[in-house]
Structure formats: C-alpha cells, structure tokens
Design a protein around this nucleic acid. Structure first.
Length: 571
RNA sequence: GGGCCCAUAGCUCAGCGGUAGAGCAGCGGCCUUUUAAGCCGUUGGCCGAAGGUUCGAAUCCUUCUGGGCUCACCA
C-alpha cells in the first residue's frame, strides 16, 4: 500500500468510506459486542494445554483409512475423548449455518476447529462465534476427532476470542505477492505464508548449527566492537557516526577481523563471532547494507584446514536443515556433499574463462601485458588502471584522468602500459600488480562459471592485504574463497602474522587510496603492535550467513532471508 | 548513480482515449463433515502524486515518489 500523504486537505485513510475503514469499523464493533457481553477482546488468561503440533503428533497415527464412497455417515466420534485446550490465529472461516469450520494456526502447525451448535456451549455459539473473524486469535477446548474427509479437528465445546484482529489479512489464496508489501509488512507475510516462516525457521536452525559445530570443536564465541575508530578488516566504504561525549568520529564496523586476531594474540586459540557488519554500498539481490557474518580463527591451522572444515560444516548443515546435501538454487541443483572442486585463480581463468594458457602466464607476470589482456577481456578501464597505479610509490606525472584519455586509443596502450610498469620499484612489485590485473580478468571471465561449490585458491597478494604470503611464490597468498552459483559465500586464509609485512600491506592500501580507490583499509598501527607481540600461526575465515541461508533455503534474494531488509521510508 | 519494468477496491488482478470491472475478503440471506465450501443479493475506488496533450485521460506525454530486475561497487 502506498499511503497518500496526510496533508491538511487529505482525508485520513481510516476516516473515509473505503472498504478498509468499513471493515475495521465492523471489527471494532464486534470487539465492542464482546465487551458488552462481559468478554475482554484482548484477554490475557489463556493457558493452552497443547500446541497444535502436539495435538497433530499425538493423533496423526490414529488416522483412519479413507471412508468408502457412498458409505453411511459415521457420525462424530472423538478419538480418545480427552479434552485439550488449544490457541492460535484463525486463518479461515467456513460457515454452514449451524456448523462453522475454522482452521487455526500457531507456531507449530495448523489445526481445524469444528464449531457446531450441538456441541459448542450455547452462549459461546450465540455470543462469541458471531463475532469471530479471520485473523482473530482464539482459544478452544474440546476433544480431537477425524472428520469424514479425514481432517483432524477439535470438536469444540468452549470458544474464546483472545485477541480481536481489527485489520483484515490479505487474500487467503494469493496472500501477499507485492514484494514491497511483503518486506514492509513482514508480520503479515509471516502470518499468512507458512513458506516464509519456514525460511526463517531454517535460518535460525542454520545459525544454531554453526554455533553447535564450532562450540563442539573448542571455539569460543566472543563479541567485539561494532563501532570502530578506524576502518579495517575488509575493503569497503563504512557508515560514519559520532560519539557525543567523546566528540569522536566512529565507523560502524565493516569486519571484526582485526579484533578477533588480537584475541588470538591474547591466547584464545579458537574464537568466532556471529554478528552484523555494515557496508555503505548499493543494495542488490546479494547485498544488504547490514549483513551477518561468521568469522572464525583457529591457531595452528592453515587455509587447507579451513577448506576441509567448510566442506564438512556445509554438508552437515545441509543434512541437518534439509535432510539432504542437494539444494536447488538459481534453478540449478547444487550438490554440497564433499569433496568440492579446488581451482586456482589462474587455472580458473584458463579452464573456465577461456583465457589461453600463454596469456594467463603472461598476465600474472607482466603488468603491461596484464593491462592489455584485462582490457581485451572486458575489464573496466578505470579499474584496471587503478590496479596498476596502486604499486607506484610516487604518482607524480601520472594523473588518472589523463591516463584514461590516453588509453582510449588502443594503439597507444602498449606504450602507456610500459611507461607505468617502469615506475614500479621492483620486479616483485610488478608481479604483485600483474596479479591484481589477472584477478580482474578472473572476475570478468570465470567468476560466474563457478556454479557447483568450488574453492578458488592461490589469490594474488594485491587483493589480499591481510593474508599470509605463499611460501612457493610471494606474489600470491594462502587464501581461498568459496563460490556457489557464481556467488562468493566464504573467504578464508592463513593469516599474515609478520608485523613488518603487515605494515607494508597497510602502506599499499594507502597507495591504493592515493590512486583513487574508494574502498581501502586504514593503517592500523595498534594492530601491527599486536602482531609484534606475536600471533601464533593462524587460519581465519568469514562466512556470509545471509548468503549461506539463501543457499540452504534456495532463496534468490538476500531480502528473502533477512526479516526486515533496509527499505526507503514510505511516503 | 545508469538502463529496463511495475503502481487500478483491504488482497489478487482485468481494463490501455469515451467517464470503473471481476474473484477473494466484508455485509444480508440459505445451508449440521467443510477445507480456495457452495448458492442468492449487496456495499465498497480522487485508477501512486503533480503537471501537460485532448471536446474527453486509469489509458498518451513529462516530472516526482515508492518498488522490482539489471549494470556499476562490494561479501
């Protein structure tokens, strides 16, 4: 509903003669009628003896075989005669004069009430039942029985309207299809759509499963600051806020990483945190500005251990939540059972991205060739140039706008690329920049082809400012990301614990900022000091809980697994 | 922020230049095993907002608001 602006001349929606106003008026009238007969329409004295799920579980095994067609009316015979008291929201009402069927719903199940003049208390029939609307919360007492059509029902002897609903629910068959309304009025969406409730029930099971898995392996759950004095732990733009008493600028955290690793320094060898991160970026089907991240750190482990852990964890969760390791997402059947494919960034470019082996080899070695190839494979020109500039300590004479103009002309590219490459202080730095360009080619050519669960491995150093350098090649690092259906779900690495190397990486971030990058980390000297104390060799990983929930519930949009996704205010 | 699409009764939708329609819900009847119950009758709308074109606009044009998809940024 897009409510009209409540200007001075406009009628308030509930004051006019619209259907809604009339229906609400009628329902308030029914509440008044209940009061007039001495019944509180918002009573607080209901104590159900059973949930609807209890009743179902108890009597489901007694379900009789379907009656033969044309047989004699079996009449009503309670199953065991035990009187139960149940409560729930009335979700439909089918009236037959002297009989009313009213299915109700609680947090566990649906169950039908059978309200009949011969069985229901006479005053309840005369004074309560006429006031009953779909949407009301009711309580009922009676014995369970099976109807002729095989529906488990309560033969109701007493009926109470516990909470009068004065605002009507949407169409019982179609429900809410307007996604805007579904997100804005999630209470309604949940009340009428069992599928939606199931998604969020599963999300809760997933989070519980994550905790159980980690707790069982000696991990300690901790909470670290959500408000940070400097930006760190990821590459993203932060939300900015302000503390009045300290007159201090604060950033809503974009990642808890640097705090959690301080805890490893402090001796918590296995820690994790499940909490919100905030990133001041655009919204999409995969992005909500606040999102939930699991980050875990394990001392004396490597990135390989965490890949194993992730495989096991996901397979267990899938089994627990869905009873199978198969799930359909984005229209494809995904198999989460172990083992998953592991492929390096460079191999992915070749095998999935269609980049010839010779080109892949060249672009990860030589940034000048890398720039050419990046442009050939459709990498954004500005992104590619910024990736090159990040490695140049002194940017004098290298103005970004000017370079972009020059590079518009393909014929001029080799010369410009050479000119940039010559400014690197070392061959090592040149190879690092080449790695960045190669990664951009990966994103352009291969990322969306990682459909079945795949660990992407051997990340270029330039895009991994907190990960440990690879012993085999210092232009790469011991890092992986998990992709499913082209979407990144997890990111882990052996942690960089050399304080001097870490300082260099922070300086590289400052250079990136100078070159024009908007999403960079601040230099965190306090964190470097912590590393100087000595952090044991550690592997860490972040798992996007919302995306994990999307995967395990098969939902296409992150907004379908976040109860209250960010929306612009109405009107 | 760019591109494409959407907005009509409480809900789900039709109408797409000639002055507003259906189903569900509601209300009044009938109906004692229904389950999208059924049948008869009936209420209900400044057609998202503001401008414009036109004899005439829900319908065509422009702008705005909100939303969806998508691109960019990122997880």
């Amino acid at each position: 509903m897009r409510a009209a602006m409540a200007g001075p001349d406009s009628k308030r929606p509930d004051d006019d003669h619209s259907t809604l106003a009339r229906i609400m008026g009628e329902r308030r009238g029914k509440a008044a009628a209940l009061r007039a007969s001495g019944r509180d329409p918002y009573r607080n004295d209901v104590r159900p003896t059973h949930t609807l799920g209890d009743v179902r579980r108890r009597y489901e095994p007694t379900k009789p075989a379907p009656a033969a067609p044309g047989g004699t009316d079996p009449g009503i015979s309670p199953i065991d005669g035990e009187v139960v008291r149940v409560a729930g929201r009335c979700v439909a009402r089918r009236g037959f004069g002297k009989t009313v069927f009213a299915p109700i719903r609680d947090g566990s199940a649906d169950l039908q009430l059978y309200l009949n003049v011969d069985h229901l208390d006479a005053t309840d029939f005369a004074e309560v039942l006429p006031q009953l609307d779909v949407g009301d919360v009711v309580a009922a007492e009676g014995a369970a029985f099976w109807t002729k059509r095989g529906e488990l029902s309560i033969l109701v002897t007493r009926l109470w309207i516990v909470t009068k609903s004065v605002r009507p629910l949407p169409d019982k068959w179609h429900g809410l299809t307007d996604v805007e309304l579904r997100y804005r009025q999630r209470h309604v969406d949940l009340a009428i759509s069992p599928d939606v409730r199931e998604v969020f029930r599963k999300r809760s099971l997933i989070v519980r499963g994550l905790r159980r898995y980690l707790d069982a392996r000696g991990f300690l759950e901790v909470e670290t600051p959500m408000m940070h004095p400097i930006v760190g732990g990821a590459a993203a733009r932060p939300f900015v806020t302000h503390h009045n008493a300290l007159d201090m600028k604060l950033f809503m955290r974009i990642a808890p990483e640097l705090y959690l690793k301080r805890l490893v320094v402090g001796g918590f060898d296995r820690v994790y945190e499940i909490n919100r991160n905030f990133r001041n970026e655009g919204l999409s089907r995969r992005h909500n500005p606040e999102f939930t991240m699991l980050e875990l750190y394990q001392a004396y482990a490597t990135w390989h251990d965490l890949m194993d852990l992730t495989e096991e964890l996901f397979a267990e969760l899938a089994q627990e939540v869905n009873g199978t390791t198969k799930v359909t997402w984005d229209g494809v059947e995904v198999e989460l059972g172990r083992p998953w494919r592991r492929i390096s960034v460079r191999s992915a470019c070749v095998e999935l991205g269609g980049v010839p082996e010779a080109e892949a080899a060249a672009m990860f070695e030589d940034p000048a060739r890398g720039l050419e190839l990046a442009l050939k494979y459709g990498v954004d020109l500005k992104a590619a140039v910024m990736a090159m500039l990040e490695g140049i300590p002194d940017l004098a004479g290298l103005e970004l706008g000017e370079l972009l103009r020059e590079l518009k002309d393909p014929a001029a590219r080799p010369a410009v690329a050479r000119r940039l490459a010559e400014r690197y202080p070392s061959v090592d730095e040149a190879r690092v920049r080449a790695g960045h360009l190669g990664f951009l080619v990966f994103e352009a050519t291969a990322e969306d082809k990682l459909v079945q669960p795949t660990f992407l491995t051997e990340f270029p150093l330039a895009v991994s400012p907190l990960a440990r350098k690879s012993d085999a090649d210092p232009a790469f690092c011991d890092r992986f990301e998990l992709f499913v259906c082209g979407k990144e779900i997890a990111n882990g690495f052996s942690e960089l614990n050399d304080p001097d190397d870490q300082r260099e990486r922070f300086l590289a971030q400052l250079r990136a900022k100078a070159a024009g990058a908007a999403e960079t980390m601040d230099y965190d000297e306090d964190y470097c000091r912590a590393l100087e104390v000595g952090m044991p060799p550690t592997a860490g990983e972040g798992i996007g809980v919302d995306r994990l929930a999307m995967l395990l519930t098969g939902q296409p949009s992150i907004r379908d697994v976040i109860l209250f996704p960010l929306m612009r205010p109405e009107s």
